[in-house]
Simulated assay, not measured.
Amino acid sequence: MSWIERRKTRTIYVGNVPIGSEHPIAVQSMTNTFTEDVETTVAQIKELEKIGCEIIRVAVPTIKAAEAIKEIKKRISIPLVADIHFDYKLAILSVENGADCIRINPGNIGEKWKVKEIISAVRERGISIRIGVNSGSIPKEVLAKYEKPTPEALAETALNYARFFEDNDFTNLKFSLKGSEVKSTVIANKIFARQTDYPIHIGITEAGTFISGAVKSAVGVGILLYEGIGDTLRISLSTHPKEEVKIAYKILSALDLRKRGVEVISCPTCGRCRVDVETLAKEVEKRLEHIEKPLKVAVMGCAVNGPGEARFVDVGIAGAGDYFILFIKGKIIDKLSEEEALERLVKEVENLVRKE
């Protein structure tokens, strides 16, 4: 049983992926290609599929992008979300071309009748809507009330949208309340979560470059997940989207919410270390990226941190002067040269996967 009690929500679907508290927290990403470029977009989506991306979002700023969805959908295996801003006609065209979900911010769609047109289109196809709320698109009347985009303003905006959609007999919804600040995002989501049972997509928007964005996302998303909030997530980084997927799983794994792939345990190094742990650990991660089975693999810099502190791992190596020791399930089974260590470690992990 998980040490985290998830907030109870209803279930909706994005394609064949269920979103809600009764289901695993789904990992999403977004392509950074031009959607009109079908070949490049499909290639990137397939790359993301291989490392566990379960839902993909694509930008739809033009008619050609909306039309490209039809061909893209034929060639990918995961559900596709069309990201729409401003033009309601692009949302409808995306629906007609097979999008599994539409992401809109009602505040930048404009008049209510335009939003109602989108509702009619998605209801006819039986697909869901993700309603996005961020600090840059809070309605004027709400902004005037709070004077600035406070967490309360974000939450009130989302709750107002929920009532509008309910008044139009549409509840096949998930919500995202995002800002670039951890504090604002966390508080807004907590307020909203207390007052509804809609599934919530979590993340820190515009989080930044790889290191700063990963840290900010891990803190913000981690707090929300620990509070039981979050049914699907995206880690937003200014880098290749495959890094978003990897970090999402690492965050979920750290909280024991989902396990996928190899977790590399490596020591921080110290004066006892006589091997290049950093380079070796990075190479191990790269070589084992294709493994889906949850495993723990250790790369340690000395015998102190070898089968002693890392005895809980499935497979590990530890530097011991001018050689390495190889240990499996805490037992030392071989002594290897530095040249042999990496290849043998990879081989033993792959053997373990085949056996189990």
Rank of each mutant, 00 (worst) to 15 (best):
E5Y: 00
V219W: 07
V353D: 04
I187M: 01
R163K: 13
V186D: 02
E124C: 12
V297S: 06
P139Q: 09
R125V: 02
L295Y: 08
F164E: 01
E36W: 09
K64F: 02
V264D: 05
G330I: 04
I235W: 11
V60F: 08
T185Y: 07
I19W: 08
L177V: 00
V60K: 06
V17T: 13
I92S: 02
N108Q: 12
V221E: 10
E124A: 13
I200L: 04
A66I: 04
I333T: 11
S337C: 08
R103K: 01
A318L: 12
Q28R: 08
K331P: 05
E117I: 10
S337A: 07
I72K: 06
D276Q: 11
V297M: 07
K329V: 15
I102N: 09
K89E: 12
E152T: 10
V58K: 04
E67D: 15
A65N: 02
E39P: 02
H23M: 00
P199G: 07
T62C: 04
A341M: 10
V115F: 03
I4C: 06
K74Q: 13
E339S: 11
I51N: 03
T150Q: 09
C101P: 00
V133P: 02
A82E: 05
I51A: 02
G179N: 01
I84S: 09
W3H: 14
I76L: 04
P18S: 06
K216I: 11
T9I: 04
V95E: 07
S135I: 13
N32Y: 12
H240Y: 12
G308N: 07
R130Q: 01
I191T: 09
P79K: 05
A162L: 15
V349L: 14
E166M: 13
F210N: 03
V304I: 10
E54N: 00
P106H: 15
S29K: 05
V14R: 01
I131P: 09
V221G: 10
G107Q: 03
K140R: 11
L48F: 10
D197K: 05
I235H: 10
V215E: 08
R260H: 00
I109L: 12
I223H: 13
V297P: 04
A59E: 09
E292W: 06
I56A: 03
S236D: 12
K8M: 02
D276E: 12
A59S: 13
L326R: 05
N105K: 02
A162M: 15
N168Q: 00
N97V: 08
K259F: 14
H240G: 10
E292A: 07
I211V: 12
I118T: 06
R354E: 15
R103E: 01
G220H: 14
